[in-house]
Amino acid sequence: MKSKQEFLGGYRRMVAIRRLEEKSAELYQQGKIGGFLHLYIGQEAVAVGMAAAITKRDHVITAYRDHGVAYSVGMPAKIILAEMLGKATGCSGGKGGSMHLVDPKLNFWGGHAIVGSHLPLAAGIATSLQYQKLDGVVVCMFGDGATNIGYFHEALNLSKVWKLPVVWLCENNSYGMGTAVDRASAVHSMCQKAEGYGMANACVDGMDLEAVYNGVSNAAAQARSGAGPFFLEVQTYRFRGHSMGDPERYRTAEEIKHWQDGDPITALRKAIVAKHKGTEAELDALDREVDDEVAAAVQFAEESPEPADAALWQHVYSESPNGRA
C-alpha cells in the first residue's frame, strides 16, 4: 500500500463499512433486521488493511462481528444487507443472518458466532492448503475475548506443531462483551499468549490503515514462507456497544471519546491530504459515491423477496432433496 490510489481505495472501503453499519443500526431499530447485530464501527481499518494485504489465493475466516470483514473481502453491500434482512438474495438466502455471512467463492468461510469456534476450523483450512501444496494462507480474525477459550489454545498449539500457514489476527478492542481484558485475561498483551506457543508475533495500531496493512503483509509473508503460523495483535476499539442490546455500563464516556478522537477514518483522511496530495474534494466525492452505494444496497435488500417456504427443508443434508431425516 503505497500509492495515493491505494489509500483512496482503502478510505472508500472504510467509509462504506461505516455507512453500512450506521444504516444497519437504523434498520435494526426499525425492526427490519432481527436477532443480534454487532457493529464494526471503529474497527474498519483492521478488515480493510487486512484484505488489502492478502491475495486471491488466501482465505479469511472471522467471528460474528463480520459485516466489515465480508465487505472488505469483496462481498457487495447489497448482498450483506439482504442477508441481514433475511432475504432470498442474501449470501445464504436469509438462513445465516448477520453473524454468519459467508462466500466460498471469495475464500471467505464465515461468520462464526460461537466464540473461538472458528479457530480450529482455520487450522483445518490451513491443513488443507498445506496438504494440497497450495500457496495460500489463512487469516483467522477473532477478538481478545476469544483468547480465553480452549479452542484458542488447541488451535494455536496445533498450528505451531504442524507449521500451518495461518495468520492469527487478534482484534484486541479491550473488551469481551462488557468485560475488560484486565478483568478476564491473566496477561494483558495478547502477544504474550502467542509467546507461550513459541509463535512469531507482533502488535500493531489497529486505528491506522497503513500499520495494519504492513503488519498483515509481514505476517502473511512469514506464514506463506513455510515458517509456520504468525500471531498478529491489532489494537483497536469499537465505538458502539458489543451488540445493539448493550447497556454500556462498563466503560466511561471519556474513554470512548479518547478513542473516537483517533477515529481511523478521520486519521486516514488527514494522512491522505498531508502525505499523498489528496484533496478534500476527492475525498468528498468518494463519500458521495458511498452514500449512493449504500442507498442502492438498502433498496435492493428491502425490495428483495423472502425465501420460499421450501427453503426451510433445503440443505439439511447435501444429497437429500427435501433434507428430511
Binding site: 482465505h59 480450529p120 487450522a123 483445518g124 480452549g150
Partner: peptide, 23 residues
C-alpha cells in the same frame, strides 16, 4: 495420517475446516 495433540476440539474442528476446503 496425522498424529494430533490431545485436543479433541482441534481434531474435529480441523477436520471441518479441511472438509470445507476440499479434503
Amino acid at each position: 495420517v496425522r498424529d494430533t495433540p490431545i485436543s479433541e476440539s482441534a481434531i474435529v474442528g480441523a477436520a471441518i475446516g479441511a472438509a470445507m476446503t476440499g479434503l
